[in-house]
């Protein structure tokens, strides 16, 4: 559990809107309105040193946008992002922060330049930040990075297409580690991989965290994977965090109806032939989200207040580590004993 006073990464009420309006001419001619996609709408959380924060949610919930906001691929529409106490959302790319924060992407086939040799891919951050000068130093560093992620230093001479998906993800990790970062943002790092390879990559990431004292923001739609790696977990729905809790708490006594639904939808290998609990409805169109609590059309506990008022993330009575954004939880309308872990 995190204990250090200052969190490594802090997000405060961060939002990112995208203008997805049709072109100006179409708006005039076809009388279409401006459309704004609120991909992330007021997200706050912090990641402590050495901690792994998991972020779960279905496609389109904004979890990948959060990742890209933190690494600076997008600028936030509002809110503050701090790294080690320094604001990083407004300033241009600060090399020191860039070095301390790296990202691992989802698709191991798209995240490596197909025309580059592996050694050049891994050496790119070293060269860009001038971390080693002579080509002998660079080669030595690349070799040790490749060995650190379980590849041979001779693999540097090959091209990405000569590797399998899992090995490519190892190359991605080696590239991310090249600048000796403190914080790694992992956007669905294993969802394109086969399970046996996923296990290899997850184990590697845990080993590296232990050895290098890394902090992770681990984004995934797969709850079992997040359960496996995270210390704390945030569940996102339509651009907002609906529940943020330590991993054991969230997986044994989820509070928010959406978190419960997500957990119930996870297939359970131990009960063959048993259908999982399906939930009616689908994620609404994010361009036209429901008023009030975005989950209310699918929520069995929704009442008038839920349809009207956006719930805010609040501490749950009795547990300082758990925050939930739900009127029903706040008012105690939700029977606590209703959810019992299998």
């Amino acid at each position: 559990m995190p204990t250090s006073a200052q969190p490594l990464v802090e997000l405060e009420n961060v939002a990112r809107y995208f203008d997805v309006s049709p072109p100006w001419l179409n708006r005039i001619l076809e009388r279409q309105r401006r459309q704004v996609l609120k991909a992330v709408d007021g997200v706050s959380f912090s990641v402590a040193k050495g901690e792994t924060l998991g972020l779960v949610g279905e496609s389109g919930c904004g979890k990948s946008t959060v990742a890209r906001l933190i690494v600076g691929l997008y600028r936030p529409t509002r809110g503050e992002i701090r790294f080690a106490g320094r604001r990083i959302d407004a300033a241009g790319p600060d090399p020191a922060v860039r070095r301390a924060m790296q990202m691992i992407f989802q698709d191991p086939y798209a995240s490596l330049n197909p025309r580059w040799r592996v050694a050049d891919i891994v050496a790119e951050p070293i060269r860009a930040h001038g971390l080693a000068r002579s080509s002998r130093d660079i080669n030595a560093r690349v070799g040790s990075l490749l060995e650190q992620v379980g590849l041979a230093s001779a693999d540097g001479a090959k091209y990405p297409h000569q590797f399998s998906g899992g090995q490519r993800q190892r190359i991605s990790i080696a590239r991310a580690l090249a600048t000796q970062p403190a914080f790694l943002i992992c956007d669905e790092p294993t969802s394109a991989l086969d399970v046996s390879v996923q296990a290899q990559v997850l184990n590697l990431m845990r080993r590296l965290q232990r050895e290098l004292g890394l902090s992770y923001l681990f984004i995934s739609h797969n709850l079992a994977v997040v359960h496996h790696v995270a210390d704390r977990v945030g569940a996102m729905y339509l651009g907002r965090i609906v529940e943020l809790a330590p991993v054991n708490v969230l997986f044994t006594s989820p509070q928010h109806p959406y978190t419960r639904m997500l957990l119930a939808a996870v297939p359970d290998l131990t009960r063959t032939g048993m259908p999982r609990t399906a939930v009616a409805g689908e994620v609404p169109n994010p361009l036209d989200p429901p008023k009030g609590c975005a989950f209310h059309p699918r929520c069995p506990y929704a009442d008038e207040r839920c349809r009207r008022e956006v719930p805010r993330l609040k501490h749950v009575a009795g547990d300082a580590d758990v925050t939930v954004a739900c009127h029903a939880v706040e008012e105690g309308r939700l029977a606590q004993e209703a959810f019992t872990a299998a």
């Binding site: 600076g72 691929l73 090399p95 860039r98 924060m101 992407f105 989802q106 798209a110 995240s111």
Partner: peptide
């Protein structure tokens, strides 16, 4: 839009590079 370009941006490579 491919991730290797995003990766290069995260590393801090300049647009011309």
């Amino acid at each position: 839009s491919k991730e290797y370009i995003q990766a290069a941006r995260v590393i801090g490579i300049r647009p011309l590079g």
